[in-house]
């Protein structure tokens, strides 16, 4: 029979397993932060000091990294591209998602499947010919070009997410608005969009993360150093001569992770909604 000690043992095993997995998940992040507060001379000494204040911690690395104007430029570029992508993607996805949710027309199913299957096309292969188009149209080394490319990657999921979000808003609202003499566009932007804030936030965050994380588009479409985004900027500066500056590398890593961590802390609910919506409802 299930004795009390047996249940206790089961619980203990469960929490032990949970603790081990949690340690594996979080230790690398912990180590990134710890390394960013230490000097290279302390990091290259064995055995490593595991506790945060075993060796002197200082903000010196942050001063050193943030005083370098290159990183501020990369940071600024990343922010411009990410916010630009979010803006374009939201407007386009709301428009497309709304008509896919409210209207029927021939070829709708085919169109929806087509939009979604775009995601499985080999990105690198697309990039090769996209690069030739961009060169011809003088779109390389422009923010617009990179924003357009990032948008196209975020769009399929965003459209589909907005469509399923609009599906949850009753159509009777649209009908009431029409009877009151509201045009189609006004119905969308004055009645439906204000009710869709959670959906817009989820799509906005998803798009921001995708653009912030983008490496390959920025690597190939931006060749001028002053236009590079943070991921490529970091990779370039630590691939070569600075390979042994581990504390600097971890410092800029923390700096690059902070916007996403902040988003996560404050807007977790919407991020998780964006993540799960897809597989669970679809």
């Amino acid at each position: 029979m299930n004795s009390k000690s047996e249940i206790f043992r089961g619980k203990l095993a469960k929490y032990l397993l949970l603790a081990v997995l949690l340690l594996l998940a979080l230790f690398p992040v912990y180590w990134m932060f710890v390394s960013s507060f230490r000097q290279n001379s302390d990091l290259t000494r064995l055995p490593p000091k595991f506790l945060p204040f075993d060796v002197g911690a200082s903000l010196e690395n942050y001063g050193r990294i943030l005083a370098n104007p290159r990183y501020l430029t990369y940071y600024q570029n990343s922010l411009i591209v990410a916010f630009g992508t979010v803006a374009v993607c939201l407007v386009v996805a709301v428009m497309a998602g709304y008509v896919l949710s409210r209207y029927n027309f021939p070829g709708k199913i085919l169109l929806q499947t087509g939009i979604l299957s775009v995601q499985m096309f080999p990105l690198v292969a697309i990039l090769i010919s996209l690069f030739t188009f961009y060169s011809d149209m003088k779109l390389t080394n422009t923010y617009q070009g990179l924003i357009l490319a990032d948008t196209s990657i975020a769009l399929p999921f965003s459209i589909w997410f907005m469509k399923s979000f609009f599906d949850t808003i009753p159509n009777s609202l649209d009908e009431a608005a029409t009877i009151d003499g509201c045009g189609r566009l006004r119905t969308l932007f004055q009645i439906i969009v204000p009710l869709s804030r959670p959906g817009l936030l989820a799509v906005g965050i998803y798009t921001f993360l995708l653009s912030w994380d983008d490496f390959i588009f920025s690597l190939t479409l931006m060749s001028k150093d002053e236009l590079r985004t943070l991921p490529v900027g970091i990779a370039n500066s630590f691939a070569g001569e600075l390979l042994f500056d581990w504390s600097g590398m971890m410092t800029i890593s923390v700096v690059a992770s902070v916007p996403v961590l902040l988003l996560f802390i404050f807007l977790q609910r919407y991020m998780i909604a964006g993540l799960t919506q897809g597989s669970v409802k679809g």
């Binding site: 998940a25 990134m32 970091i234 690059a256 992770s257 961590l261 996560f264």
Partner: peptide, 23 residues
Amino acid sequence: YRSLFLIPWTIPSVVVALLWMWL
């Protein structure tokens, strides 16, 4: 717990690469 487990997912891919190279 769920939030804590999600933290690795918030780290940008380039940073993930550098971080594991350091580890």
